[in-house]
Simulated scan of single mutants.
Amino acid sequence: MSEYTLNVKDLTKTYNAGKPGEVRVLQGVSLAVKPGEVVGLVAPSGAGKSTLLHIAGLLDSADSGSVAIAGTDMTKLSDRKRTAVRRDTVGFIYQFHHLLPEFSALENIVIPQLANGVSDTAAQARALDLLDRVGIADRASHRPAALSGGEQQRVAFCRALANEPALLLADEPTGNLDPDTSDQVFDALMGLVRDTGLAAVIATHNLALAARMDRQVRLTAGVLEMI
């Protein structure tokens, strides 16, 4: 068993390589995250934090370097196996909730579990438990349009954790909310993370929120540094 849930080494990524206007987004980025650790990734818009999260979560590939999840080097796996790891081991949260509008809050959390082979009874029980942890179990039957922005994002958090991932990657998860709601929703997210003991990398431009995480790193001009 690896000491780290996520271990990326010497990642490089360039868009339009060799062409006029090429952009070197990542320049030898390395980051290791232990189980139960929450790392705040601070970067201005356009600095490459989304690219880093997508590569770490196997949604994109680096030009060079390696990504290991739970001790397994992902760069050596087939696309099919990488997809399986992404489904079973990685949870994603984005700035916008991307909930399925025709389904209730509960159903949005149940569906990914059913796709992963969980029984309907067990999936509903876990969904209700997760909704209860973030304080909106009474909104389980409501569709996204009937939920506030903060409630929608809490449902998105629950969905990301539905299949009990080992790694959570969040890209500006409260960036679309007002300051008061952002604080409340962030508290809910941190409660879920602490309860489950997973490793998490949370990208934010909010330095106050980043300061509440275990440690902070800053991505500037393609280089990652400790804050």
Rank of each mutant, 00 (worst) to 15 (best):
G48A: 00
K76H: 12
I136D: 04
I111S: 05
G91N: 06
D73V: 09
L106C: 13
R139Y: 03
N206Y: 02
I69P: 13
V33W: 01
L167A: 08
S148I: 11
L198A: 08
M1W: 08
I136T: 03
I136A: 04
K76R: 15
A105N: 08
T51G: 05
V85M: 13
A199H: 00
K34H: 13
R143I: 12
A145I: 11
D187N: 10
K76G: 15
E164F: 10
V223M: 03
R86K: 05
N108R: 06
D132N: 15
K34G: 07
S104D: 13
V33A: 00
T196Q: 14
A170G: 05
D60Y: 08
S61H: 12
E3I: 06
S45C: 01
A43L: 02
R194W: 12
A70V: 07
R215Y: 02
R80N: 15
A62I: 09
D79S: 14
S2P: 14
L177R: 03
L131K: 00
A115F: 15
L192V: 04
S2W: 05
A200S: 12
V85L: 10
L77C: 09
V67F: 01
I93Q: 01
G46V: 05
P144V: 06
V223K: 12
L53Y: 09
L147Q: 06
G28Q: 03
V223D: 00
K81H: 13
T14Q: 08
A162L: 08
D187W: 06
R143C: 07
F103H: 15
A162G: 06
R87G: 11
F186D: 02
H205Q: 12
L192W: 03
D214A: 04
D88I: 03
Y15R: 02
L209A: 07
A211V: 05
V38T: 14
A211R: 14
K13A: 05
G57R: 06
A145E: 15
A221D: 15
N116W: 07
Q216W: 04
L177G: 04
V25E: 02
A199W: 03
G71D: 07
L189M: 15
E102M: 13
L167P: 09
F92D: 03
L114K: 06
A17E: 15
A32S: 14
G36V: 07
N176V: 08
R139P: 00
I227R: 07
F103I: 09
S182R: 03
G65E: 00
F103S: 11
T174E: 02
G46T: 04
G18I: 07
G175K: 12
S119L: 07
L100C: 09
L168E: 04
L99F: 11
Q153Y: 01
L219I: 01
R218E: 15
T89C: 13
P101F: 11
T196W: 11
H142E: 14
D63F: 02
V201E: 06
A115N: 13
D63P: 09
A105T: 11
K49I: 04
R139L: 13
A160P: 04
V90G: 10
N176S: 15
K81P: 07
T75R: 12
L114T: 09
S66F: 09
Y4H: 14
V134K: 01
D120C: 05
A140G: 07
N108A: 12
A127G: 13
I93V: 15
F186T: 14
